[in-house]
């Protein structure tokens, strides 16, 4: 079992370390922060190691986790927004690596493409658009709001109290959970609905004849029922061993069969976000043709009111 006292001690150390690292004018104490932060990470590792080892987690996890945490700390402590964004890309990359570790290859690449590729680039654009130097003489000088953190003590204390509470709860909660999720579904169960994929694989392996199509797939027995185009002559075909469901297949099937409405809603949200971004970022032009016509408007509305009264 993980020793909570070490975890809490690591939280305290991490909090103090982060305090020293947060940006401030003339911050010469940042090495202390770095040491304390590293100590906190080490303490956390120690706690994990004493708590029963990796349980199937290999060295890559520790590397990537260290990378992610370090990049994240640097991201929030770096006083230049561009660097912060770049460190965030590093976090994304480390996270993507972890996803690969968790056999979520598709999500790993989606993360890199969407986050590192699209969202972060947008951020960088905006940073470059909106960044300004406090004075023209020193283009590299930091603005006040970038150079200093705001209420670092309160925020750090609150954050690490939250972290300690979260971790405490987490270990209580997961301690009550089974070591392995008991009943998990049959491997490659999605094959039952992926008849097209099965048929293509069988055809490529020449296991079915050209006139035959797959009617039914039994994922558990790894067999498929093939039928003649004419409708008769059913026969059962064994699936080749190398026919597996890929991560993309599984995600796609789950997305479309289990969450079709959510998928639609997500699409609508994206479209609305696009519309909203266009409306918000559009520059209001002064003196549009409609404004120049507004001189007539009072007269028009008055005549409308008169007309309404006449109708009454």
């Amino acid at each position: 079992m993980v020793q909570m006292s070490i975890i809490y001690a690591a939280c305290v150390a991490g909090a103090i370390g982060l305090l020293f690292l947060l940006p401030r004018r003339g911050n010469r104490w940042w090495p202390i922060g770095a040491v304390l932060g590293g100590g906190a990470l080490g303490a956390g590792l120690l706690a994990l190691a004493r708590g029963g080892g990796g349980g199937g987690v290999d060295l890559f996890f520790y590397l990537l986790a260290f990378l992610a945490i370090g990049a994240a700390v640097r991201m929030i402590t770096h006083s230049r927004p561009v660097y912060a964004a770049l460190y965030f890309i590093l976090v994304v990359l480390a996270t993507a690596g972890l996803f690969v570790q968790l056999a979520a290859e598709f999500m790993a690449f989606a993360l890199i493409i969407v986050y590192a590729g699209a969202i972060l680039i947008t951020y960088l654009f905006v940073i470059m658009l909106a960044q300004e130097a406090p004075d023209d003489q020193h283009p590299d000088a930091l603005t006040e709001y970038d150079a200093t953190a705001r209420e670092p003590v309160a925020a750090t204390v609150a954050g690490f109290v939250l972290l300690a509470a979260l971790l405490g709860m987490m270990y209580r909660g997961t301690g009550a959970m089974p070591a392995h999720a008991a009943a998990h579904r049959t491997a490659d169960a999605e094959l039952a609905v992926l008849t097209g994929k099965v048929q293509a694989a069988l055809r490529a392996a020449d296991l079915i004849r050209p006139g035959e199509t797959i009617r039914e797939v039994d994922a558990e027995a790894r067999t498929a029922v093939a039928a003649q185009d004419s409708g008769d002559g059913l026969r059962t075909v064994a699936l080749p061993d190398d026919l597996r469901v890929s991560n993309v297949d599984a995600v796609g099937v789950s997305l479309l069969s289990e969450f079709p409405v959510s998928l639609e809603v997500a699409g609508v949200i994206l479209m609305l976000a696009m519309l909203g971004a266009v409306v918000l970022a559009r520059k209001e032009r002064v003196g549009t043709p409609r404004d120049s016509k507004s001189g007539n408007t009072p007269h028009d509305s008055q005549s409308l009111i008169v007309g309404a009264e006449g109708a009454l």
Partner: peptide
């Protein structure tokens, strides 16, 4: 904004601690 965020964090931590103590 950060003031509100701080309040949220404090509230969340408080709720978690209350639940923790009560369970």
């Amino acid at each position: 904004l950060q003031g509100y965020g701080l309040g949220m964090a404090g509230g969340l931590a408080t709720v978690i601690i209350i639940v923790w103590v009560m369970l």
